Amino acid sequence: MSQPQGHVVVEALLFVGLLVAVFVGFNIGGSSTGVAFGPAVGSQVLGKLAAAGLMTTFALLGGWTIGREVVAKMGGEIVPQSEFTLLATVAVLFFVGLALLVSNTFGVPASTSMTAVGAIAGLGLARGSLNSDVMLEIISWWIVAPVIAFWICAVLGRYVYPYLDAWLQLDQTPGALVTLDRSSMIPRIRLGPNTTLREFGSTVLVVLVACYMAFSAGASNVANAVAPLVGNGALEMNTGILLAGGAIGLGAFTIARRTLDTVGNDLTELPILAALIVETVSASLISFLSAIGIPASLAVSATMCIVGLGWGRATRTVTIGDALGGEAPQVSVNALTVEREDEVPKMGEEAPDELSAHDLFDPGTTGRVIFFWMLTPSLSAIASYALFSSRFF
């Protein structure tokens, strides 16, 4: 092949690689926006358009700061950088995007990081260059992180949540949160007719925590779109992060609507306090993992926080002694129903029927989400391994 022809082929592959990276980032935005802002949208604190705008801004900020560590890990430590030829990079990103597209089509938040690492691991296994120590470290955190998320929220639900609820009383009153007063020459923003200062403050807090969650999503997920391109030198780190951030924003404004419905409405009906706890714990956990370079799943952590918080609340109907004696807590309850008593009932004194206004979460939806967490990285790894083991590579 002559030099001009070879140059044209390289440029064509790079262009395709950039398109596939945008495709991956687009799907990341569709998946992660639901996880980050689903609780806020589900509790009617934010609309979908506002959630998309905030997701775009803070995901880019997260990728620009601590997300660099994850890009470095995925772009050259799971497999050597030399394995990321342009053709291999395009193939890896394609498998990631395809698996995520399947997940988003069914309206569930996919584990983007697990899918991306699965594709890279398939490449490494086929070439015999997989760094088993790095993979063991990543997989260990994949196992440990959801367990940590569940138990932190379970403890908070059992021992802390009812006291916070009784103290904060984060009600949502009917009507607009704020209104625009046009009675004077300079319009002023005022609290709605039924809005209290406590409600306004709690609403602002929910939005801030959701933005923090979007920050952690960007920190963890920007690498999934551009790490191979950065690893092989096709993109400079800053350029890659900007490209991924823009693609995530595109997904947030379009296909994220389905995952917002799934997390915000189908999975659970979250009160404001529950949304705050879920977002704070899951975002803190993912931000920590991103800072140490571990690509982890925000979707897994967030949902395990939801389930753990509800399970912890449900166990307040029995004491530890009763549970050890065979008295099982009623888990399928609205364990996050607000408390309005001056004194929180002692452990074991809450009747199950006091917590049963609605189901805490839909087991069918939860099972569907878990199924896709396992399916998408498996499909990505298997397809990647099969391709790179073939004679074409």
Results as ranks from 00 to 15, higher is better:
residue 247 A to R: 04
residue 387 L to G: 00
residue 107 G to M: 03
residue 335 A to S: 15
residue 332 S to E: 09
residue 146 P to W: 05
residue 170 L to T: 13
residue 292 I to Y: 06
residue 207 V to Y: 00
residue 283 A to P: 09
residue 362 D to C: 04
residue 341 E to H: 13
residue 210 A to F: 06
residue 238 N to P: 00
residue 341 E to P: 00
residue 201 G to C: 10
residue 391 R to G: 04
residue 274 A to S: 00
residue 376 T to N: 02
residue 149 A to Q: 08
residue 365 T to R: 11
residue 108 V to I: 15
residue 129 S to G: 07
residue 313 R to I: 01
residue 227 A to H: 03
residue 278 V to H: 04
residue 92 V to G: 03
residue 138 I to V: 08
residue 240 G to N: 06
residue 196 T to N: 03
residue 302 A to F: 14
residue 54 L to N: 07
residue 124 G to C: 08
residue 114 M to T: 05
residue 303 T to S: 15
residue 32 S to K: 07
residue 386 A to K: 05
residue 265 N to T: 12
residue 223 A to C: 08
residue 203 T to W: 01
residue 169 Q to Y: 01
residue 307 V to Q: 06
residue 361 F to R: 05
residue 129 S to Q: 14
residue 263 V to S: 08
residue 193 P to A: 11
residue 269 E to P: 00
residue 94 F to K: 01
residue 29 G to P: 08
residue 74 M to T: 10
residue 109 P to G: 09
residue 386 A to C: 12
residue 96 V to S: 01
residue 305 C to H: 12
residue 271 P to G: 09
residue 23 F to K: 03
residue 333 V to H: 02
residue 339 E to A: 03
residue 19 L to Y: 04
residue 58 F to M: 15
residue 196 T to Q: 06
residue 147 V to N: 00
residue 228 P to H: 11
residue 377 P to L: 12
residue 317 T to E: 13
residue 249 G to Q: 11
residue 214 A to T: 13
residue 165 D to F: 02
residue 177 L to F: 00
residue 211 C to G: 13
residue 280 T to I: 07
residue 17 G to H: 02
residue 54 L to E: 11
residue 296 A to C: 11
